[in-house]
Write a protein that binds this DNA or RNA. Structure first.
Lengths: 271, 271
DNA sequence: AAAATAGTGTCTTTAAGACAATATCTA
DNA sequence: TAGATATTGTCTTAAAGACACTATTTT
């Protein structure tokens, strides 16, 4: 799927021929329609908004919660970063469109994917009315590492805590997603999706700490997680290593006791 | 807003004139298009889906959780009941469309309204591709009573526990909404929106019992609610009455101690 | 007085949070 | 052996759930 900038690429074209607005029985519009009411009538009548599916891909990289962004190449918001997305095909489901986007951007499949929210304020895209159904995906860092090298100049991972200015209403989308993620952390096992199959409790705790953006007590965390009996002890590997440089990724080093999730009851969706 | 059947009325027209969509590099269609590849190419290529906003209006009536449905008059699903909804206008926000729908159907304003989910499977509407952004609304029974009389033959309130067969994927939508509502009951004050401004604890408990579909312990319920300090004691009225016939509505009779919500922290939205 | 409802308190269990010392590994 | 990390348990507090009796109202 193309990024929005290009997808929209017919670009300025979009702005003309889009003058319609189903004005007919538009009495209810009252306050909102402050434009000149010229020839609006027939042109607008049967217009449909564009529908896109955006996918906010989140992953843990460098001990940070990062998202994938794409640099726009054209108006509007030229040179700004945006959440990848594209138009939906007429014969694919919303989720299929999201998966396609995901596949195209990162090459990964079978990752956690959840519908986040639908954003559709008129004016959120200056070209035309665009309603976007946003999904978010959680990618485990290990599988992602492989493809990470192929980053082009106009694709990049950014910390959710230090984002550049984003195009459209995309900052709002990120905020919404972060909220959703934090909430679900508390009552689902959604966090496991950010880790490879095997991981230490320390690593899991770090996931929570990074997302919640606060330190957690080690003993209480272990108690809580283990009490749920969703983890299975695999054979023991060992520690992250003592004098290890900060930047090193845990998975490179020998690990301590490995736990493996056996029951993921994260089949919830968006309540 | 008209019900979908009529809204769709511009009908087949809608399919033409909507040709933009910058399909340009749309090679990605691949797996999903399993239909004969005849002229699909140009017809579908620039087509846009229709977007509707449906509103599931919920209220407590006759000690039951009921929703408003509309009887369809034409194909498809002729004579079946459906959730009211309609096309979105080009210059109104999704929420504005939902409010408009709400206003048209029930005449009420300023009610609790929350975006539920967006349903968009191809084939959910046999006429054309329709993506629907669903909202749900909670109406307090008192204000609603007024307008309830104006029910036409093709509009009706139905118990969520005894629904007729619904058109489209609307049963799925109801299930989804009921789940959302039940979950939010636990950690928000969303339930207050189903009651008038003043109510007894007994009435509030009944709301919970009806929605959760199970009995609750009176003492524990009161303890829990009162411990949150979100209720304010208004002057005392009295009981629902002893030998009262089952069918009678609580609000008609003298009430017991009235509590009034003072802090509604139900400003949450759909995490 | 009979029938229905309103109102109230204790005990137990569970989960969460605060908190510090010892053992192990690697350079 | 110095520096970093791994591991472990107790106490307190808060919330949830199970549970039964008395008082009041109306017909």
């Amino acid at each position: 799927m193309e990024e929005q900038s290009e997808a929209m690429g017919s670009g300025t074209n979009g702005l003309q021929g889009l003058r319609e607005m189903t004005q007919e029985r538009q009495q209810h519009n009252a306050g909102s329609s402050s434009e000149p009411e010229t020839h609006q009538y027939d042109v607008n009548k049967y217009e449909r908004p564009s529908v896109t599916v955006d996918v906010l891909m989140m992953s843990l990289r460098q001990r940070d919660l990062q998202i994938l962004l794409i640099k726009r190449r054209s108006w509007p918001y030229e040179d700004m970063w945006a959440i990848p997305g594209g138009f939906i095909n007429m014969n694919e489901s919303l989720e299929a469109a999201a998966k396609r986007e995901l596949q195209e951007e990162t090459g990964v499949q079978d990752v956690y994917l959840e519908q986040l929210y639908t954003f559709g304020d008129p004016g959120r895209d200056p070209r035309t009315r665009v309603i976007t159904v946003v999904y978010f995906a959680l990618l485990d860092s290990e599988r992602l590492q492989v493809r990470a090298a192929s980053d082009a100049a106009d694709v990049g991972w950014f910390s959710v805590y230090e984002l550049p200015q984003l195009a459209f209403d995309h900052q709002e989308i990120v905020d919404y997603a972060l909220n959703r993620l934090r909430n679900k952390l508390e009552y689902t096992t959604i966090a496991f999706n950010l880790l490879p199959e095997q991981f230490t409790l320390r690593e899991l705790q770090r996931v929570y700490e990074i997302i919640l953006h606060k330190r957690l007590d080690k003993r209480n965390f272990r108690k809580k997680i283990l009490s749920t009996n969703i983890l299975e002890d695999t054979g023991a590997k060992k520690m992250e290593g003592p004098t290890v440089p900060r930047a090193c990724i845990a998975s490179i080093l020998p690990l301590n006791i490995n736990y493996k999730a056996i029951l993921l009851r994260s089949e919830f969706n968006g309540y």
